[in-house]
Design a protein around this nucleic acid. Structure first.
Length: 409
RNA sequence: CGGGGCGUGGCUCAGUCCGGCUAGAGCACUUGGUUCGGGACCAAGGAGUCGGAGGUUCAAAUCCUCUCGCCCCGACCA
């Protein structure tokens, strides 16, 4: 990708609406466009990151046998009346009538709809267990949108649902999803912690939250420095007795063992081996996909900009071209890297070197290659590692090997 | 929903308290030239009617009333 042709228009000054570090950097680097309070558009740069996060999620969902589907955002209110959640979620639900005077809502979540689908197609224990998931936009009329994508009125969520004939089956699927979640957050480069949680308005019993520490977090946990553990209560550390530090935490994912709350209310029943009708046993598993953008940015940045972990960066390599006689050379090298599956941004703009360096830091791709007169003389490229600011001097071939090694391809 | 703050070219802001020349700055943008490994320089130029509506006044970005939007604190938060 040529920078001059790309839809990247970084801002020189901090945007006034910026509420926190991640929001400031995401707007400044033109990853996001604020449409209105709590409503955002993902610009090409932000969408690249989101696409990579989604790909990681899909990979690990599929690895655990989950199948992807895509439900509707528009939902008839009747399905919500079956579970009574039209009242529970009334405050946050966007509701309106269509031309036939039918009451619809924009789905704030999809338990009711998935249960309707399962009710329609699942009749026998032979069809179970199964796990379905989607990556979809949710709509919630938030009382107070906050911190950009952290709490917005329209956001992208991955929601998975498991269906089983027995409690044991539920536990098995629940463990599979927990494994997937750990793999996902790890691959996204997040220092997450997992904790038992309340299930709130979701219903059900056991639930776990996946969180990351950040001052803009809306949840609180208590941290024991000595044991490196997190606790729900302010009391002293149950392991060593040290006093605990309060930590703000961002909730990125939440898993619930729902049981039969929805299947009973919506009559999602199956016949077991003995011919008895029983409610399907459900679990649900959410990840705030769009929230991972600020979660990552909030935990990985420096004074120059975001430092994207290498698996979720918009590009893998950012070439800073400082001598226009090298354009063809740089483009040729970019093509070689792209053929091997790496995304390369070539900054061939007619801008001062400092502008290009600062934009490269702001955008935050992991490897910055500097091609200028030093390369012209030595045929060796100055490579700067965004995260550590470490500098290497490598030939093209050496860098390619380095890249392959870094990504273990 | 309560409390506070803000709204002036694309961006960041000055001017508002104490109304008064053709509404400013920096950055960005356009054209020409010089630069060119760390947010360059010179010259010329385009762009705002001051969030919106109403009012006071000889005169309103500036005062008054209403309204819309954005941000912060709180309540809320699957």
């Amino acid at each position: 990708m040529l920078y001059s042709k790309s839809f990247i228009f970084t801002l020189r000054e901090d945007p006034k609406v910026a509420e926190c570090t991640s929001q400031k950097l995401l707007l400044k680097g033109t990853f996001l466009y604020m449409v209105s309070s709590g409503i955002y558009a993902y610009l090409p740069l932000g969408w690249r990151v989101l696409s990579r996060i989604s790909a990681i999620i899909r990979k690990h969902m599929q690895a655990q046998g989950a199948q992807e589907l895509f439900m509707s955002a528009l939902q008839p209110i009747e399905i919500w009346e079956k579970t009574g959640r039209d009242k529970v979620l009334e405050e946050v639900m966007f509701k309106f009538k269509d031309r036939k005077d039918r009451m619809l809502c924009l789905g704030p979540t999809h338990e009711e709809e998935i249960t309707e689908i399962v009710r329609k197609f699942i009749f026998s224990h032979k069809q179970l267990p199964c796990i379905l998931y989607q990556i979809q936009t949710k709509f919630r009329d938030e009382a107070r949108p906050r911190f950009g994508l952290m709490r917005s009125c329209e956001f992208i969520m991955k929601d998975a649902y498991s269906f089983d004939t027995t409690e044991e089956g539920l536990h098995e699927n629940y463990e599979k999803m927990r494994t997937a979640y750990q793999d996902i957050f790890k691959e996204c480069g997040l220092q997450f912690i997992m904790t038992e949680a309340d299930s709130g308005a979701m219903g059900g019993s056991i639930s776990h939250e996946f969180m990351v520490h950040s001052p803009i977090g809306e949840d609180t946990l208590y941290h024991c420095v000595r044991c490196a553990t997190y606790h729900k209560d302010v009391k002293t550390c149950p392991q060593c007795g040290d006093s605990l530090q309060e930590k703000r935490m961002i909730e990125m994912g939440h898993t619930f063992q729902l049981g039969t709350k929805y299947s009973i209310a919506q009559e999602a029943l199956f016949l077991d081996k003995t011919g008895q009708r029983k409610p399907v046993i459900m679990g649900c598993y959410g990840i705030g996909v769009s929230r991972l953008l600020p979660a990552i940015a909030e935990t990985s940045y420096d004074e120059k900009g975001i430092i994207w972990p290498k698996n979720v960066s918009p590009f893998d390599v950012n070439i800073v071209l400082l001598d226009n006689t090298l354009t063809q050379d740089a483009l040729g090298f970019a093509e070689i890297m792209e053929k091997q599956g790496f995304a390369v941004l070539v900054d061939e703009r007619d801008e001062a070197a400092g502008v290009k360096f600062n934009d490269a830091y702001l955008i935050g791709n992991p490897y910055i290659l500097i091609m200028g007169k030093k390369y012209l003389q030595s045929q060796k490229i100055d490579v700067e590692i965004r995260k550590t600011r470490e500098k290497l001097n490598l030939s093209k071939e050496e860098f390619l090997n380095f890249l392959k090694h870094e990504y273990a391809r």
